[in-house]
């Protein structure tokens, strides 16, 4: 399986993402600069964390109009897995690929620590290698991770089982219903504030994030075997 790690000016978790895929997962991966116009050669798209365009105006607001983003939309429409972590999640909401928005943390502080995440839905292509309600330890590092959406959207998210991760004990940012990560209706676009790529090997302090990437590959292999 071949992954694209999209690199915007100001991305800073692109190397971590690349490392997790290449060295920990053992799959193919390439960096793709934000003004590229073709993602057809890739099976999955990863939007890394960081401060794309310096978070100017709003997080993700400017990146969302990069050339590559129309390709990311195409990939999402084609059913390819698209994962946005941290700033990547912010870009996905700005681009309208995921509902809602990310606000300033309620306590106005940049939160950087490892938190417990509860797997609310393990029936997605990103979480099949976890058990339902399993609590995993994943690092967060954000100042604007307070997920917000209106009541109507929240009801829809619940009805469709789109809430994938919630903060297990303490909510670090004040997000609605302790939401840490959601998928789109189709289930192939995941946005999450915590960083699974930073928990891909015990030497990094934990490896609970690796199963997320393994789930993606497993789903991809299975769907391609079925097609053959």
């Amino acid at each position: 399986m071949k992954f694209a790690v999209i690199v915007f000016p100001g991305s800073n978790c692109d190397l971590d993402m690349y490392h997790a895929i290449k060295d920990e997962l053992g799959e193919e991966v390439e960096y793709v600069w934000h003004d590229e116009t073709d993602l057809s050669g890739f099976d999955g798209v990863l939007l890394p964390g960081g401060f794309s365009y310096g978070d100017y105006l709003r997080c993700g607001a400017i990146s969302r109009f990069s050339n590559v983003m129309s390709e990311v939309v195409k990939a999402a429409e084609a059913g390819k897995p698209v994962l946005g972590v941290c700033n990547g999640f912010q870009v996905l909401t700005e681009a309208g690929l995921l509902p809602g928005a990310l606000l300033r943390n309620k306590n106005l502080k940049f939160m950087c620590r490892t938190v417990g995440l509860k797997v609310e839905n393990n029936e997605t292509q990103f979480t099949s290698e976890y058990s339902k309600d399993e609590v995993i330890q994943i690092p967060i590092a954000h100042g604007e991770g307070n997920y917000y959406c209106d009541e109507e959207t929240l009801t829809r998210l619940k009805e469709n089982n789109q809430i994938v991760f919630t903060y297990a004990s303490e909510n670090p940012n004040g997000s609605i219903e302790d939401i840490a990560g959601i998928v789109n209706e189709k289930g192939n676009v995941l946005g999450m504030m915590p960083h699974p790529e930073r928990a891909a090997n015990d030497i990094m302090g934990g490896s609970d994030g690796l199963a997320l990437f393994k789930s993606i590959v497993k789903h991809w292999r299975e769907s391609h075997v079925n097609q053959a």
Partner: peptide, 8 residues
């Protein structure tokens, strides 16, 4: 389109 995010 750009200057505001009408969700928030």
């Amino acid at each position: 389109k750009l200057l505001t995010n009408t969700v928030i």
